[in-house]
Every structure is written in C-alpha cells, then in structure tokens.
Design a protein around this nucleic acid. Structure first.
Lengths: 134, 134
DNA sequence: ACAAATGATACTAATATGGTATCATTATCG
DNA sequence: CGATAATGATACCATATTAGTATCATTTGT
C-alpha cells in the first residue's frame, strides 16, 4: 500500500520544478526534458493542476504553466486529493451493500483516529517545505 | 485509499468469530453461514491464516480451524501483512527503474515517519482488544 | 494567417483486488 | 478398510484502479 501515487509524485516534481525557476512560466516541453515524465501523461496532470487552481496555464505561443500561489500555500494534501481523491483511510469495504457485520465497525473509528494523525502530519507539508528540505 | 482490504476485513471477522465460540474448532461451513462470506474466498483466506500460523487447521471429518494463539497475541498488523503485504506506505513509485529524481526522496523520509506513527497505533490492536471494544 | 502552446476527451495497457472452480490430500467413523 | 467430510493446493476469471497514449479542438502571440 502506497501513500503517494505516481500521479501525485509527478505533480509534486512538476510543481517543485516550476517553483525553482526564475522565470515564472514554464512550458510542458521544458518539464518533460527536465523531469523525464511521459509527455502526454504529464500534460494530463498539469491540466488537473490547472483546474484545481494550483497552477495557472497560459495558452498560445510562449505559454505554459505557473504557480497559482506562493509555495508556502500549496499543500501536499491538495495534490494528493487532486489525484487520489479525498483522503479516506477508513472507507468501508462494503460501500453500496449494507455492511453485513456492524459489530466490527468500531474498527472504523479506530482507523479514523489513525487517519486524523496521518492527516495532521501531512498537512504540515507544503511545496515550500519540500523545496527547503532537500 | 483504504487501510484495510476486504481480505483482511474478512480475516478479522473470521478470527473473531472463532474466538467467540466455546468449542475451539470451527468449520468453514459454520463460518460461511455466520459471516456470509463467499465460501471459496473464505477458504482461501483461512488457508493463508493457517500457513501464517494464526489459525491451525484440522483436516478430515469433524475438522476445521482453531486459533493458534491466545487472542491477545494475535495482532491486527499480522493480518494486514498476511493479506496486504508488508506495511510500506513509503514504497517508491519507481521500484525496478532507478528513481529518476532523487532530489525529492526526502519525501520518502517524511513518509517513513508517518508510517512509524501509523504502525505504532495499529500495533496496539489485537483480536482481544477488538472483541472487548465492541 | 500560422505556428506554438494548452484544453478536452476517448481510448488502451498493466496491475491489483475480489472471487470461482477443481482436484488432491488427509482424517474420522461406521 | 473404505466412504465421506473436511482442508490443501492451484489455476483460473472478473472487475476496478492506475498508468499511459492518441487525437482533435481552442487559444494566443507574432
């Protein structure tokens, strides 16, 4: 079980790369070259980041992507949620069906506590902190 | 992302059920009836539990499964590892290939810390504690 | 107008998860 | 001892998720 998917991982790298450049706007071409991520896949990822207003895209010649906010306002959890959906460790294995054994659902509560812990750890992590700690 | 897979969930239920019975040995037939888990799937799960020496199987007529240890010695993490593999939240998305961007691998370290936290929470949970807390 | 960029979207491939089916082996009991 | 009732081993199938590709539309600067 992984905490970070490939999507998210690529997204972190891309955002970090853009953040490190002096010029604010960076093209996909440059990102592909620098990060060695398959181009069409990276494009899809960047489009999501644009929709989520983590990056802002500029179309047309000379276009590309830039940060939508300062690096200390972009949280790792945002990227995770953008690509991996809302953070629910405790999601019941029986979604649609009624859970056939409610007696054990206190387990869910326990896992809720764990989830809170994980989230509070993760929520301290911003792109800023990632850049600083390398 | 779920912390507990269906396999593990079923395994917890089965082990708890066996623990609650007075008779020590319980057949698959009884478990299927009580827990409403698809029989062949449950069988596979029980076989794993047997191999991992969490349960002990008795073949032949009148056979079935019994606990290999006392309930306070069976940990949730054992069941999770049996069905979901070793607990590695931080597993790199690039297993075989060399990670193309080691600069970000401090992330891995951060997630290691989270992993430790989660593990220490989980490691307090035994079948005993699950039975008591319902 | 044209070229250089992203937007939208549909498709494909690989992997993980959940579940089934079948035959072999072992143990009890009449 | 042999039939039967149980589990062991194993190969297979179905579905969901993740990873990645391909194509055409739209926008923008020169």
């Amino acid at each position: 079980m992984k905490l970070i998917s490939r999507n998210t991982d690529y997204a972190v790298r891309a955002v970090c790369y853009i953040a490190r450049q002096d010029k604010s706007i960076v093209s996909v071409a440059e990102l592909v070259k620098a990060l060695e991520i398959p181009r069409p896949f990276l494009r899809k990822i960047l489009q999501v980041l644009n929709k989520k207003r983590i990056l802002i895209s500029n179309k047309g010649s000379g276009g590309g992507f830039k940060l939508a906010r300062k690096v200390d306002k972009i949280f790792l959890t945002e990227l995770m949620e953008a690509f991996q959906g809302p953070f629910k460790l405790n999601e019941c294995t029986f979604k649609k069906d009624l859970c056939p054994n409610r007696k054990f659902c206190w387990l869910k509560n326990k896992i809720d506590i764990i989830e809170d812990t994980v989230l509070s750890e993760l929520s301290t992590m911003t792109i800023d902190s990632i850049l600083k700690e390398k």
